[in-house]
Simulated assay, not measured.
Amino acid sequence: MYLQHLQLHQFRNYAGQSVEFAAPKTILVGANAQGKSNLLEAVELLSTLKSHRTSRDRDLVQEGSAAAQITAALQRDSGPLDLTLTLRANGRRTLSVNSETVRRHLDFLGHINMVQFSSLDLDLVRGGPGTRRNWLDTVLIQLEPVYAYLWQQYQQVLKQRNAFLKQRRAHPERPPDAAQLPLWDQQLASMGARVIQRRYRMLKRLAPLAQKWHHTISGQQEQLVLAYAPNITHDPEQPDHLYGEFLAQIEARAGAEYHQGITLTGPHRDEVDLLINETPARQYGSQGQQRTLVLALKLAELQLIEEIIGEPPLLLLDDVLAELDLNRQNQLLAAIQERFQTLITTTHLGAFEAKWLDSAQVLTVEKGQIQL
Results as ranks from 00 to 15, higher is better:
A300K: 01
S359Y: 05
A227Q: 15
T131F: 13
K204A: 13
S218K: 01
D273Y: 01
E278H: 15
P313L: 04
L203F: 11
K204L: 11
R205W: 06
T71Q: 15
L316F: 03
Q221W: 03
P313E: 01
I336P: 05
E173M: 10
Q153V: 00
D57M: 02
A351N: 08
Q260R: 14
A189E: 03
L332A: 00
L372C: 08
E20K: 06
F246C: 10
I276D: 03
H234E: 04
R168F: 10
S190N: 10
L60Y: 02
W213A: 05
Q186E: 15
D121H: 01
R132H: 13
E271V: 01
Q197L: 12
T364L: 11
D235Q: 13
A33F: 06
D319P: 04
Y200S: 12
K159N: 08
G261V: 00
V320W: 06
A229S: 10
Y228K: 02
Q290Y: 04
A322T: 11
S96K: 03
L188S: 00
I344P: 07
L333P: 12
G310A: 01
N13S: 13
K355S: 14
N162L: 00
V139N: 07
P280C: 04
T279P: 10
S65M: 14
D235S: 04
Y200C: 11
A72Y: 11
R291G: 01
P239R: 03
G128K: 09
P236Y: 06
Q238L: 06
I112C: 09
D235W: 07
G192R: 00
T101R: 14
Y258W: 05
N13V: 11
T101L: 09
Q186S: 13
A72D: 06
F352D: 04
K36C: 05
Q187A: 13
Q155V: 06
K36G: 03
W151C: 04
S65K: 13
S96T: 00
G219W: 05
D107T: 02
E41H: 08
G64F: 13
A207L: 06
A210F: 02
Q10R: 09
G310D: 05
E100V: 13
V146F: 12
L81M: 15
Y258S: 12
A66H: 10
L8S: 08
L183K: 07
A334R: 09
E63D: 09
H348E: 14
L304D: 00
R282E: 09
G368N: 11
L242P: 08
R103K: 13
L136Y: 00
D325H: 10
